[in-house]
């Protein structure tokens, strides 16, 4: 136990991850003329308007017909196009699972499924729209790369990375404005990012929970608990090495995600650690439940997805670790 010199992550503004996608899409569209974009009547919400304005011939308004959108995207790859589909995460996955499975994943088509408004922070629209199962759905598909970004800048960089990557990708981001802190941090698909160095516990976080984990880290440090903070943006393929190296040092891991604990990042990590190095683990995730209407902030608090919950669960986890080591 002990405190650590923490790296300071600051931000100039809060900005939504979906705007990072919109800006990234426009940038890759300028670089590569094979980039095309498809949207199912949510152009504004997905921030695809600038791409549409700049490249009208490469933008396809599909209408409210997501199944058709996935099939058309698969077909567009034949002839060398790189399609980016855009709609809410719920309509990007569960609604069109069979289309993605057969026409994209099994057919190994170079489609980028870009999904906004993921998770509970979609907020007021409520549970019908707040998908908390999409990472599980997508990671189970053979050959699918699954990415969940944490802020504007990471989403922008991820959009570039997936444009240059050959193969189907699920890129998940969100609606609310969150601190944009990762300006100086490079992005590489499949490569986790060490954000803080500590010894007592490994905190792995993805998506909006990354900032929460950095906040939790500061609070825990004041209590004398030093944390290894790792951002896993690529859920699949998972950067096992960075996690393994950390838990060998800390002996305890807490996984944080805006997703059901069943089927999410935490489950992936538990699965591989059980084979390589069994480690006590705690989950910051939704507890097999649907969401509800509310402001993103209040929902995160109620469903246990905020920095306070991370602090509480970390303290409990360390107590458990100490009990086990004293036996």
């Amino acid at each position: 136990m002990g405190t650590t010199d923490l790296k300071n992550y600051s931000f100039n503004e809060k900005i939504d991850t979906r705007t990072g996608f919109g800006v990234g899409l426009l940038e890759v569209g300028k670089i590569n003329k094979n980039i095309v974009a498809l949207c199912a009547d949510l152009t504004g919400s997905l921030k695809m308007g600038d791409f549409k304005k700049n490249f009208p011939e490469r933008f396809f308004q599909i209408g409210i017909a997501e199944a058709n959108m996935m099939g058309i995207a698969a077909g567009l790859t034949i002839g060398g196009k790189i399609p980016f589909t855009g709609t809410f995460a719920n309509f990007s996955t569960g609604r069109v699972y069979d289309q993605i499975r057969q026409s994209i994943a099994y057919s190994n088509k170079n489609v980028k499924i870009c999904a906004s408004h993921a998770g509970i922070t979609l907020g007021e629209d409520g549970a019908t729209h707040q998908i908390l199962e999409d990472l599980g759905l997508m990671k189970m598909l053979p050959g699918m790369t699954v990415i969940n970004t944490c802020d504007y800048e990471q989403t922008r960089k991820a959009t570039h990375a997936v444009a240059n990557f050959l193969g189907p990708v699920y890129l998940r981001f969100g609606r609310p404005k969150v601190p944009n802190f990762s300006t100086e941090i490079p992005f590489e698909i499949g490569k986790g990012i060490k954000l803080q160095n500590g010894n007592d516990v490994t905190i792995v976080a993805t998506g909006h929970l990354v900032w929460e984990s950095l906040e939790a880290c500061k609070k825990l440090n004041k209590k004398g608990i030093s944390c290894d903070i790792i951002n896993i943006h690529t859920i699949k393929p998972l950067d096992e090495d960075i996690i393994l190296e950390s838990v060998k040092k800390t002996g305890a891991i807490i996984t944080c995600e805006e997703h059901n604990y069943i089927g999410g990042l935490g489950e992936s990590i538990a699965g591989f650690l059980s084979k390589r190095k069994p480690t006590i683990q705690s989950y910051v995730a939704t507890n097999d439940t649907f969401g509800e209407s509310g402001t993103p902030r209040l929902l995160m608090k109620k469903y246990g997805l905020d920095s306070e919950t991370i602090v509480e669960k970390t303290i409990k986890l360390i107590e458990k670790k100490n009990q086990l080591s004293s036996k």
């Binding site: 077909g75 034949i78 002839g79 196009k81 057969q102 026409s103």
Partner: peptide, 15 residues
């Protein structure tokens, strides 16, 4: 699913 895919291929050819 095939008609959607065929349409995608048509759009690709046009581009």
């Amino acid at each position: 699913q095939g008609l959607s895919v065929a349409i995608g291929a048509c759009l690709s050819k046009k581009l």
